[in-house]
Amino acid sequence: MSSQITNWAGNVVFRAERVERPSSLDELRALVARSGKVRVLGSGHSFTRIADTPGVLVSLDGLPVGIEIDGDGAGVRVTGSVRYTELGPRPHWGKLFTIPAGTLRTRYERLPDFRKPARDLDPAGKFANEFVDEYVLSE
């Protein structure tokens, strides 16, 4: 291997012999059929060796993107090349999440409408904290 393959932070070095980027399902099928060990390399955000292999790492980035929403809107099917962030997820406010404040604010189109009444109803900021200030109230 001429250059190292690492996670996005560069602190995990994978030992794969190469990375393949098929552009169709047929290419992916052929690659898997002719290869020994194969692992799919996601977005590279893992801090463990879960995607590591001595064989071939496969990136699905080149595959066609497909998103299908069920007729009743209760479910969705996505292809392997769709990244979670492309779906515009909104994290649960009561859970730990690592989305930067600026990115999070773009996911809530009506957040600006919430700021004025929030400030009017809590002018002293009794219910605010650093998190609320950064993620909700700041513009």
Rank of each mutant, 00 (worst) to 15 (best):
A33H: 12
D26T: 13
V19I: 11
A16R: 06
R29T: 09
T79Q: 12
K126H: 15
E109H: 11
I67V: 15
P112F: 01
L57E: 00
G10D: 00
G73L: 06
S3L: 15
R18K: 10
R77T: 14
D72R: 11
L31W: 03
L104G: 02
E109M: 07
E17K: 13
K95M: 13
P117V: 02
F14Q: 08
P117Q: 06
Y108V: 09
G42Q: 01
I99R: 05
G55I: 02
S35Q: 10
P100H: 06
V13W: 10
K126A: 13
P22V: 03
N129T: 08
R29Q: 11
I69H: 03
L111Q: 02
I99V: 12
D61K: 02
P89M: 01
D122H: 10
N11Q: 10
S46W: 06
K37F: 10
G75I: 07
L96M: 12
S3Y: 13
F131I: 15
S59H: 03
E139Q: 09
L87H: 07
L41M: 08
G88Q: 02
V58D: 07
S81T: 06
S2F: 12
L111F: 06
R29A: 15
V76H: 01
R49P: 00
V13E: 14
P123C: 04
R39P: 00
R119C: 11
E130R: 14
R110A: 14
P64N: 05
G62L: 03
V76S: 00
T98D: 08
G55H: 03
K95Q: 15
G42A: 09
E20A: 13
N7K: 03
R77Q: 11
F114A: 11
F131G: 12
K116E: 14
A9C: 10
V13D: 10
V19C: 04
W93G: 04
E139V: 12
D70A: 15
T103Q: 14
V78D: 04
T53C: 06
P100S: 00
G125R: 07
G62H: 01
L121V: 07
R119E: 09
V78L: 02
I5E: 02
R34G: 07
G75F: 06
E109Y: 00
T6G: 09
N7C: 07
E68D: 14
G55T: 06
D113V: 08
V13F: 08
E20W: 00
G73Y: 03
S24R: 04
D26Q: 14
R110Q: 11
S43R: 15
A101N: 08
F114R: 03
R39I: 01
A101M: 06
E130N: 12
R29E: 12
N7W: 05
E86T: 04
R115H: 08
R34E: 15
G66Y: 04
L25H: 11
S81N: 01
R39D: 00
I50L: 13
